[in-house]
Design a protein around this nucleic acid. Structure first.
Length: 462
RNA sequence: GGCCCCAUCGUCUAGCGGUCAGGAUCCCAGGUUUUCAUCCUGGUUACCGGAGUUCGAGUCUCCGUGGGGUCACCA
């Protein structure tokens, strides 16, 4: 059974990079009929907030990435960690260190000045004298001092670290007794039964430390997949300064979860030449071994394209429903189908779609000057009047084709090209020269509104 | 600075010793459309550099260069 997890620390909203590793973890679990767990890493009481944790859960809910089982909160597991810290202490695999923060800082400074690696010198490793008074000790784990640690990474391959280069007896419990990150991550992943850890490659250098914990506690080391970072346009790690990195901001901008997820899954992962992936296809085809080794730059051009694609292909009923989130209530409109069909190929986002609909339904209050000049010729008035009278005298006007027939009739009767009526009529109905098919527009707004807009235009322009 | 990772069109990527280096996006041009958008067709643009291995290297090895990550009683 494959068990994956996403383990954010609730110091802010869910961001794009986190979402991508969460998505990868989710897909891999689902593909293997396994479990995708959620753990909130809130051991830093000062920086964490309940709201942030809720924001993350909300984002997952919007995206439809549902986790299995209960959410694990590290802040509620102090007793669990205490048990394992005690176990390590009892078995001599960890020890109390009475070095004060000040002493440690001083040591670090000394080493840095001597161009040595800053590391704990192990002075309390085998200490059995009388501890100094007034110092609350930290607990340090005995890490190997020589030899090599190999992270068998599913993305990067075997990554070899020399113990002397990177390890020291690192702290697993602070002076106040609270456990530290590298310790709790290892303990929780093991206890939660996580088999496959998929996370950002900024964690790669933490992994040997976590493996030390696994070894000391006799846990089975999981498979690791360290996925490359997402960089900003400057090639640096994506941060809040880079604009929209809050996942929920994408909802506000009018992107659908399908589009966003499809966009993200292709960032660092690919399956041949395929670009469009439904959730079912992602689950079927995803494999972390196919993840790239190199970082990718965050650029949303393709997101816009995907978003437009999904809107274009969305059933009208679903589209109308989603548009509700952007202030557009369409349930009562009797030409909803025609309306949505006419506009859904023109919008990149749901928000834009809502704006397009609203705009079309509104009687134009102004006319693009340039377009008026371009569209209105000497004979335009007569043509529009001819067409308007045909509309006025028709009783059965429902479909675009009904209006189209009338336009054809005017064209025939007046011996003119289609552009002669199309251009001025377009400006009259929409206020500008661009927009959807005029027959659809008229069918959508109806006979009365059509006549009103033509009359308005004639008054204003002639 | 130590350690680690990475390197194909502007961007996302395919490639897994022999390819005219493929696709997508963006951009440009043409077609379709009364217009715009969609759609269709076409086009411009890439193997970081140098050695080596090999009959043959984007693909393997080494060195360089460049970029990134990480080095806490943060996570």
């Amino acid at each position: 059974m494959v068990v994956t997890r996403f383990a954010p620390s609730p110091t802010g909203y869910l961001h794009i990079g986190g979402l991508r590793t969460a998505l990868f973890s989710y897909l891999w679990a689902k593909k293997n009929s396994g479990k995708f767990l959620l753990r909130i890493e809130d051991t830093d009481k000062a920086r964490n907030s309940q709201e942030a944790a809720e924001a993350i859960v909300n984002a997952f809910s919007w995206l439809g990435l549902t986790h299995d089982g209960e959410i694990t909160y590290q802040s509620q597991r102090d007793e669990v960690y205490a048990v394992y810290i005690k176990q390590l202490l009892d078995t001599g695999k960890a020890y109390y260190c009475y070095m004060s923060k000040e002493e440690l800082d001083a040591l670090r400074e000394e080493q840095t000045a001597a161009k040595q690696r800053a590391m704990y010198d192990g002075r309390y490793r085998d200490f059995n004298g009388t501890p100094p008074e007034g110092v609350a000790p930290v607990v340090r784990i005995k890490a190997p001092q020589s030899g090599t640690i190999v992270v068998q990474d599913g993305v990067k391959g075997d990554v070899v670290f020399k113990a002397e280069d990177i390890l020291d007896d690192f702290i697993i419990a602070r002076a106040d007794g609270s456990p530290t990150y590298n310790f709790v991550v290892a303990v929780d992943d093991a206890l939660m039964g996580v088999t496959d850890v998929i996370r950002g490659d900024d964690h790669l250098s933490n992994t040997p430390k976590q493996m030390v914990v696994y070894e000391a506690l006799g846990f089975t080391i999981p498979k690791f997949y360290h996925v490359p970072m997402i960089h900003n346009a400057e090639g640096k790690k994506l941060s809040k300064r880079d604009g929209a990195t809050d996942v929920m901001a994408y909802k506000e901008m009018g992107y659908t979860p399908e589009a966003l997820l499809n966009f993200l899954v292709r960032l660092g992962w690919s399956y041949g030449d395929q670009e469009i992936f439904s959730m079912a296809e992602m689950i079927e085809l995803f494999n972390p071994k196919d993840i790239n080794k190199s970082a990718s730059i965050y650029n949303t051009q393709k997101l816009d394209w995907l978003s437009a694609h999904y809107i274009k292909n969305m059933p009208n009923e679903e589209l109308a429903h989603l548009l509700g989130d952007y202030g557009l209530v369409l349930t009562s409109h009797d030409k909803k189908e025609i309306l949505l069909d006419a506009l859904k190929e023109r919008a990149k986002t749901l928000k834009e779609m809502a704006e397009l609909v609203t705009e079309m339904l509104q009687t134009p209050s102004a006319y693009e000057e340039k377009d008026v000049k371009k569209a209105f010729k000497e004979d335009s008035k007569a043509i529009l009047e001819n067409f308007a009278s045909k509309v006025r005298n028709s009783s059965e006007l429902h479909l675009p084709s009904d209006y189209h027939a009338l336009m054809d009739a005017t064209v025939q009767e007046m011996q003119i090209g289609f552009g002669k009526i199309g251009q001025p009529l377009r400006v009259a109905l929409l206020g500008k020269l661009s927009g959807p098919g005029l027959d659809s527009v008229m069918a959508i707004i109806g006979k009365e509104e059509t006549l009103k807009r033509i009359e308005n235009a004639l008054r204003a322009n002639c």
